[in-house]
Design a protein around this nucleic acid. Structure first.
Lengths: 153, 153
DNA sequence: TAAATAAGGTAAACATAGTTTACTCGGAGT
DNA sequence: ACTCCGAGTAAACTATGTTTACCTTATTTA
């Protein structure tokens, strides 16, 4: 029932797609938090990453963000409250729609978002250098096909 | 500062590697939990997945599992305690090494582990059907090269 | 040999972060 | 005017993780 033999090297066929995706995804996640912290955005921790992820919270309503993050409106609201206290964003009234509000980055929020993108681009450069430009493009292309497919619904 | 243009379709180049890895990885994660629950392993929830992941906890020491999962020994110990109460595993004394213990799946634990692997293999079949066998193999091969590289340390 | 040290494991207090339950506010439909 | 609905909010509760502290056993060392 164990998955690996003793003393034999790991092969591609031993690895299932779950671990192959999860491990690098988590590594990227940790690195982004680490570099944001190091760049002066000390307060940002793991739960905040529910917001600092594609396609970002700027201009979006809290309930939509809750939906995207897969959490309750209340939990999202507390996250937003904490980030508002920390000066990363504001929740302003939406002019037209009833009681609706809209999340807007402050200057500091934009700076943090820009830093996160910068780290991600740096990571892409490193991967491209390691795999070679052609294979890296191929990897992104394949993952994009997964993205567009019904596989991940 | 926004990442996307209005009213234009998303292209590969818009997507950064972080989201391309994270979204499918999370989808797989959710599905495994869901199908384990449906298969009679109702009690298993998200935090338990820190153990139900490659290469599995069977035969491993608690402190190693804590290290792998990136959490404290105490937190891991509580997880193990909860799974022990639920009948998925036992912590037996290791015969030689001092106070060391070893985690062992019970029959139920083995069954859950086998089910998780089965779901994963089903997911792989679906992806292979969607992408085609050649491209799917290519995807795994590229991810494996990332796995072996220093990129994810 | 005896004492100090290190490593694995455990326990309790605490902090964090999420869900559940319940409420308010504003707009739309009747 | 009355009801209903959706968005947002608040408070109580729950879970899950960290911090702090301690026990046990083996190894090192004076």
């Amino acid at each position: 029932m164990t998955l690996l033999q003793e003393n034999s090297p790991i092969k591609t066929s031993d690895m299932l797609i779950g671990a192959l995706l999860r491990v690098p995804a988590e590594a990227i996640h940790r690195r982004i938090i680490h570099e944001l912290n190091a760049a002066g955005f000390q307060e940002l921790s793991l739960p905040h990453m529910a917001l600092f992820r594609f396609p970002g919270p700027d201009g979006v309503r809290p309930s939509v963000l809750a939906e995207r993050a897969g959490m309750s409106k209340q939990a999202m609201n507390r996250l937003l409250g904490s980030l508002e206290d920390l000066g990363y964003l504001v929740r302003s009234d939406a002019p037209d729609e009833g009681r609706a509000r809209i999340v807007r980055f402050t200057k500091r929020g934009h700076a943090a978002w820009a830093k996160a993108l910068e780290v991600l681009r740096e990571i892409e450069r490193e991967w491209r250098a390691e795999l070679g430009p052609k294979d890296f493009s191929q990897l992104k292309e394949l993952l994009f096909r997964v993205w567009e497919s019904p596989l991940i619904r």
